[in-house]
């Protein structure tokens, strides 16, 4: 039969501090500490550290690529704006050049027209003068002819006298 006292003797080993037990405990604990550090906890802690670094790196990389993307988009926007301005400028330039050319053409046309008009007028004047000259020449020779005919036919003393006078008078008026 078991008794209460027997049960308490479960702890028979309580009594006494045995040096051997202490050394055994110390030896095994330190050995265990060394072994699990080397084979279990060390690798686990390393892995955790590696993961931490990896995550940190990933976050950094994500941050960097985000910043890059933002920068690129800003650049693109800038570029687009610049392009728009350039295009606007080209259109404006073209418009201006067109207007200039238009005016130029109109001016040239006007000048040409004026020139043509002037030359036509000069021609007309010239022709007119030529015609007048020719007419004058014709009239002179005709009048000489008529004069000779008249003189041949019926010039007499009296008439001659009258003609001379008239002539002289005419000359005198002209002078």
């Amino acid at each position: 039969m078991y008794s209460y006292i027997d049960v308490l003797s479960v702890g028979a080993s309580v009594g006494g501090l045995r040096v051997g037990d202490m050394l055994v405990q110390l030896f095994f604990f330190l050995l265990l500490l060394y072994l699990v550090k080397k084979f279990a906890w060390g690798p686990i802690i390393n892995m955790m550290q590696k993961r931490e670094e990896y995550v940190a790196n990933e976050i950094d990389a994500a941050e960097k690529s985000r910043a890059d993307a933002e920068k690129a988009s800003q650049e693109a926007q800038e570029r687009l704006k610049q392009m728009k301005q350039e295009a606007q400028k080209i259109v404006d330039d073209a418009k201006e050049a067109g207007q200039k050319q238009e005016q130029e053409i109109i001016r040239a046309a006007r000048e040409e027209a004026n020139r043509l008009k002037e030359s036509a007028q000069a021609d007309i004047q010239n022709e007119k003068e030529k015609a007048l000259q020719a007419l004058q020449d014709k009239v002179a020779s005709l009048s000489v002819l008529i004069a000779t005919k008249v003189i041949e036919k019926e010039i007499d003393e009296k008439d001659q006298e009258k003609l001379i006078n008239e002539y002289i008078k005419e000359v005198g008026e002209e002078l």
Binding site: D21, V24, F28, V36, F39, P43
Partner: peptide, 28 residues
């Protein structure tokens, strides 16, 4: 003369250490 060892302690310390070591290594 002063070196007494409770063999049960020795045995159990060894068993505990072995269990911890084996479990840790298996798990890692």
């Amino acid at each position: 003369s002063w070196l007494d060892v409770n063999l049960a302690n020795l045995f159990m310390v060894a068993v505990s250490s072995a269990v911890v070591f084996i479990l840790s290594v298996i798990a890692s």
